[in-house]
């Protein structure tokens, strides 16, 4: 029954997402998933590093990349990571409205990031003719960066479903765990981006 999960406002649990056994399992399960994601992205990064100079006469990393857009994207994603920290802070204080608000801002920032990435890819394709099939570098680039972008799309869909489904329900110990696992996933997306801007863009402009 739903009232089994309700939070007593006079006796707040320290972390509502980890009160129930199910919540604890969700938390552990998400970390296991992130361990697997680490290995997935490790292999994609390794492939990219091995193939980044195989341009087959097409555009090279130095022809393509620009610092400004990547910097903007980094700020958007990093800030969205902070706003989800705020959301979790309000979750722990049992303030559902503030939590929804900050998760909403997180989603908008994520959407901004995604728009920049779509613009970037469109720019490479139309202005440079640089596609997935251009070269081994092209395949490795779009696979790695596209996989990250796909994670952002998935995260945004997840967030929208969570926020809409629970809009009238309020916060309880059942859905707190769901919000918390989303926040962890979103932070992880930002961690992956830190390595993308370092390994792909910054190092691509140096060498």
């Amino acid at each position: 029954m739903s009232h089994d999960y309700s939070i007593d406002p006079n006796n707040l649990p320290e972390d509502p997402s980890r009160v129930t056994a199910e919540g604890k399992m969700k938390h552990l399960g998400l970390w296991m998933f992130l361990g697997g994601e680490t290995v997935l992205f490790a292999s994609l990064f390794g492939t990219y590093i091995a193939l980044k100079d195989s341009t087959a006469g097409g555009p090279t990393t130095q022809d393509l990349y620009g610092l400004e857009l990547v910097f903007l994207m980094t700020l958007l994603l990093l800030t969205s990571s902070l706003t989800s920290v705020y959301a979790i802070y309000h979750m722990k204080n049992n303030n559902f409205k503030q939590m929804q608000l900050w998760f909403g801002i997180t989603g908008l920032l994520g959407l901004g990031f995604l728009a920049c990435e779509i613009y970037e890819f469109a720019h490479y394709i139309t202005d440079y003719g640089f596609t997935f099939r251009s070269s081994a570098f092209g395949s490795a680039f779009y696979t790695l960066v596209g996989f990250h972008g796909g994670h952002v799309i998935f995260g945004l869909s997840w967030l929208i479903v969570l926020m809409v489904r629970n809009a009238k329900r309020g916060l309880d110990t059942y859905n707190a765990a769901k919000y918390n696992t989303f926040a962890l996933y979103w932070h992880f997306i930002d961690v992956v981006w830190v390595f993308i801007f370092t390994v792909v863009y910054l190092m691509g402009m140096v060498s």
């Binding site: 292999s43 990064f45 390794g46």
Partner: peptide
């Protein structure tokens, strides 16, 4: 789990 992931990442990069 995460430090295990780091170790695999290190091996993949090295390899």
């Amino acid at each position: 789990i995460i430090y295990g992931g780091f170790w695999v990442t290190f091996l993949v990069m090295l390899g």
